[in-house]
Amino acid sequence: MTARIVSPVAGKVVGLPGVPDPVFAEGMVGPGTAVDPDRGPGVAVAPISGVVQKLHPHAYVIVDAEGRGVLVHLGIDTVKLDGEGFQLLTEEGAHVAAGAEIVRWDAGAIEQGGRSPVVPVIALDAPADRVTVTGADYVHTADPLFTWE
């Protein structure tokens, strides 16, 4: 069944080439897209219904009932912040619905700290031709972002 992945944040859809990190930009982590988030405090949500397989302050993976994993990475090089400025709103192993609140953060503060707040949303282990980006120019939180056949 086709999975409908929703945007974890509100912002401008910039696609993977819009990510200032070649490993994401070239699709090496996987196919998908990226959102340049609205600046300011916000909450990143689950892009798909499933289980929280991995939850870091700066990144999380939700796996759906069919084993499809979606990675949300909150900004680039943000692993080096060691969780500073991120508040976890759920825990690993939790069952969540698409749109459920996962991490509270502040894209503006990330940018002021000298890092890109761009959010790659990645279909893990997916062949590129199974992913179709449907999100338009601007998406609100939980708006459709891409489909995964």
Partner: peptide, 14 residues
């Protein structure tokens, strides 16, 4: 330095 997080993990898997 960051173990096998997104970027190094992708390089490793490839």
């Amino acid at each position: 330095d960051v173990g096998l997080h997104a970027r190094p993990a992708a390089v490793f898997v490839q």
